[in-house]
Structures are given as structure tokens and as C-alpha cells.
Amino acid sequence: MRYFMKRLLVLLGATLALTACAPSLFPVEMPVTASLSDSGGTASLVPYQPLVVRLPTNPSTGYGWRYTVTGDDVLRLDTVSGEAPAPNGMVGVPGEQVWSFRAQGAGRAVLTYVYERAWEKSTPPAKTFTLTIEVAPGQ
């Protein structure tokens, strides 16, 4: 019985030691979030770090965001979603559109968004959003 208890304590100790090391073995970077007020700025990321872009929208007006990425291939789009605060099924209420990206490798890219109506080809966009992304080399 005493031998069994010693083995159990050694096993528990080893498990605790490995668990304590886990955060440094598998780092998880917090997402960087950008909104309209960050336009013209720079977001610094490390490889595999998430970037979340949240922009106001109201699709009932006919306007929508369109984006382009120029520069190094450092971002991968993960998801696009719409989040509207429309209570009780109200229609036409402004909301938010959310793009989730993930940094890939080191480099620099520029995200450019335009808020426009697709059918108004000669009209300038109602809003624009630009963000420079700098991804540092991994460690």
C-alpha cells in the first residue's frame, strides 16, 4: 500500500509540473481588436495571433463593407459575421460586421475597407477604414 501511495504522489507531482508548463509550451495570444476609430493606425501581431475587425453597418440602407488586403501574405480570413443589437426582432437597426483574421507569417499588409452601395459605381464610399498589419517573426 505504501508503494502504491508513493507512485500515486509521484504521478500527481509530474502531472502538476507538466500542467504548470503548458502555457509556456503552447502560447495563446490574445486577439487584437480594431474598430473604425483605429483607421489609419497599425496593428502589431505575432504569427497565429488573431485580429478582429469590428465595423458599424446597417444593411437595410443598402450600404455594405468591402475589403481588400495588399502586401505580404500575412493574414488569413477565418470568419465573417454580423452582430446586430436589434431587440425584439426590430428591422433596420444598425449593427456591427465582424471579420476574424489570423496572422500567418512575418511581414506587412494593409487592410482597406470601403462602405458603399454596390450599385453606385461613380459615388465615393460613405466611409473608409485602413489598417496596416505588421506581423513580427515567430520566436
Rank of each mutant, 00 (worst) to 15 (best):
Lys121Thr: 06
Arg2Pro: 12
Leu11Gly: 00
Val135Thr: 08
Ser81Pro: 05
Gly105Met: 12
Arg102Gly: 00
Gln97Lys: 11
Gly71Met: 02
Ser60Gly: 10
Glu134Trp: 13
Ser37Arg: 02
Glu29Ala: 06
Val110Lys: 15
Glu116Phe: 14
Ile133Leu: 01
Ala118Asn: 14
Gly40Leu: 05
Ala17Val: 00
Pro47Arg: 15
Arg76Phe: 10
Ala126Glu: 11
Thr68Asp: 10
Thr19Pro: 08
Thr61Met: 05
Leu77Thr: 04
Gly13Val: 01
Ala118Tyr: 14
Ala34Ile: 03
Gly64His: 09
Leu12Met: 05
Val74Ala: 09
Leu16Met: 14
Leu45Gln: 04
Leu8Trp: 08
Gln97Thr: 14
Val52Cys: 07
Glu120Leu: 09
Thr79Ala: 02
Ala103Lys: 10
Met5Asp: 15
Ser37Trp: 12
Lys6Leu: 15
Ala103Ile: 13
Thr61Cys: 02
Asp78Arg: 05
Ser122Leu: 09
Ser44Val: 06
Phe129Gly: 08
Pro59Glu: 12
Leu11Phe: 00
Ser37Leu: 02
Leu16Lys: 09
Glu29Cys: 09
Trp99Glu: 00
Val53Glu: 05
Gly82Thr: 13
Glu116Thr: 15
Val93Leu: 11
Arg7Lys: 10
Val110Gly: 11
Pro137Asn: 06
Gly89Val: 03
Met30Cys: 11
Trp65Val: 09
Trp99Lys: 01
Pro137Met: 08
Ala22Asp: 07
Arg7Ser: 09
Ser35Ala: 07
Ala103Asp: 05
Pro94Arg: 12
Cys21Val: 09
Glu83Arg: 07
Thr130Glu: 11
Thr15Tyr: 04
Gly71Asp: 02
Pro85Thr: 11
Pro94Tyr: 04
Leu51Arg: 01
Met1Cys: 13
Ala136Asn: 05
Gly92Asn: 02
Val52Leu: 13
Gly92Val: 01
Pro85Val: 09
Leu18Ile: 15
Tyr67Val: 05
Glu116Leu: 14
Arg54Lys: 09
Glu134Asn: 14
Trp99Ile: 01
Thr33Met: 04
Pro31Gly: 01
Thr130Met: 13
Val80Asn: 11
Glu120Gly: 08
Pro85Met: 08
Lys121Trp: 12
Thr57Gly: 11
Leu12His: 01
Leu25Asp: 11
Thr79Lys: 03
Tyr113Gly: 03
Gly92Tyr: 01
Val93Tyr: 05
Val98Pro: 09
Val53Ser: 04
Val135Asn: 03
Glu134Gln: 11
Ala17Asn: 00
